[in-house]
Amino acid sequence: MNAFLGAAVDGILYAAWLFNIAVGLTLIYGVMKILNMAHGTFYAIGAYLGATLLGLWFSSGLPSLGSLAMIPVAALVAGLAVGVAVERGVLRIFAGRDPVVLLLVTYALFLILEDGIKLIWGVDPYVVSEPMWLLGTVRIGPLVYPAYNLLTVAAAILVGVGLTWFLQFTSRGKILRAVIHDEEVSHAMGIPVSRWKLSAFVVGTGLAALGGALTAPTVSVVPAMGVEVIVMMFAVVVIGGLGSIPGTVVGALIVGLVRSAAVHYWPEVELFSIYAVMALVLAVRPKGLFSGVELRKI
């Protein structure tokens, strides 16, 4: 029973982390129809920026608990700086091109940004583990976890509820949904589509950076850490259905629980288990569990 409880809790914590890093990818695809290969690098930039700001905070002798505020600050700075630069400087130029072209463009961005990270932060690992222990520990049955892990779960819940509320119950959210469903009609109605695309891309980038900043205190921040997560991101959004936030929630839970069960009971098939679940879901639902009806013009 202890092993089962451990697998379940680890799976939920991992699912919350996956949702945080993948929901921005879903948002960007839903609005811009771009499979953003550079999304893992946005996560890495958030982790590096978060580690840098946290390191500066602790080296300045400021109150330790206030360091947690550096996590959303890192996400905001990364979202605004990187998101605006990439969308305005690159993606706007290729707007309307074939999706395969856009996929290759974002892959090129991924390679460029990975080298940019090495130029700015070098190749040595950054370790800022102090925030992990600021909130103490929490006991779940016989198991003990750092209470910091609950921040990841809280962030996932706040982001998921916030995005759903915005899209479903606000006037601006309904405008964004109009842009998602029919860009041409939105133009005709006077909606500044390009501005909404920029906003969505910046938010999506910021969410990836938030996931990275939240992760920074729990791992060594090293080059190519964005490469390690991009497969998991795509597994989540493909299983759930591209462009679907509820699908991202379900996809993250499936991947998180399956991976955790594999780690606890059959470690040799950990990575294979993710591909097996993805293949099984796509065999039954080729466009994902929550894929919507796609409109096409004839």
Rank of each mutant, 00 (worst) to 15 (best):
S220K: 10
F272M: 14
S64H: 15
L102M: 14
A155Q: 02
I191E: 05
V73W: 04
F201Y: 13
E183R: 15
V269P: 02
V193F: 01
V222G: 03
L167P: 01
Y29E: 03
G50W: 08
W17F: 15
G288M: 11
V222K: 11
L167M: 14
V73C: 06
A7T: 07
D98A: 05
I230T: 13
T152E: 12
A188I: 05
A200E: 05
G247C: 04
I274H: 02
A252N: 03
L111H: 02
E270S: 00
V159Q: 03
S171D: 14
G190I: 10
L76K: 06
S291W: 09
M233Q: 14
G30K: 11
E184Y: 08
E183W: 01
V255W: 00
I112F: 14
S60Y: 06
L282F: 06
L113Q: 07
A156T: 08
A262Y: 05
P217V: 05
A75V: 14
A7E: 02
G141S: 00
L111Q: 13
V221T: 10
G116V: 15
P223I: 07
G288K: 04
L257Y: 03
Y145E: 01
K287W: 12
W121S: 01
V229F: 09
G122L: 13
Y126F: 14
Y145S: 01
V238K: 06
V203M: 06
L18T: 10
N149L: 11
L167H: 12
L207W: 12
Y43P: 07
V231Y: 09
G50E: 06
I175L: 14
W196H: 13
A200Q: 03
Y29F: 15
G226T: 06
L111R: 06
V277D: 04
G247P: 00
G96Q: 01
W196D: 03
Y265C: 09
W165N: 01
I180W: 04
L214G: 05
N20P: 05
V236T: 04
K287P: 07
M132N: 05
Y14L: 15
V73T: 06
L207P: 00
I93N: 11
I34E: 06
A155T: 11
A154M: 09
V153E: 09
Y48M: 08
I230R: 10
L102R: 02
V77M: 08
I117N: 05
F201S: 08
G251E: 00
A279S: 15
Y148N: 09
V31A: 08
F4I: 14
L210C: 07
W133N: 13
S186R: 02
F272P: 03
A15L: 13
G136A: 02
Y145N: 04
L102F: 00
V82Y: 10
G46C: 07
Y275F: 15
Y14T: 14
V128M: 05
G96S: 09
V222W: 04
W266P: 00
D115A: 10
L151S: 11
G83Q: 01
P286Q: 11
T26V: 08
A85V: 12
E228P: 00
G50C: 04
T205P: 00
L198E: 02
F110S: 15
V293Q: 14
A8E: 04
M278G: 02
V159F: 02
T164S: 15
P217K: 12
V73S: 05
L167K: 01
S60W: 13
V202W: 03
L5F: 06
A78L: 12
I239F: 02
L163V: 11
D182G: 07
D124T: 03
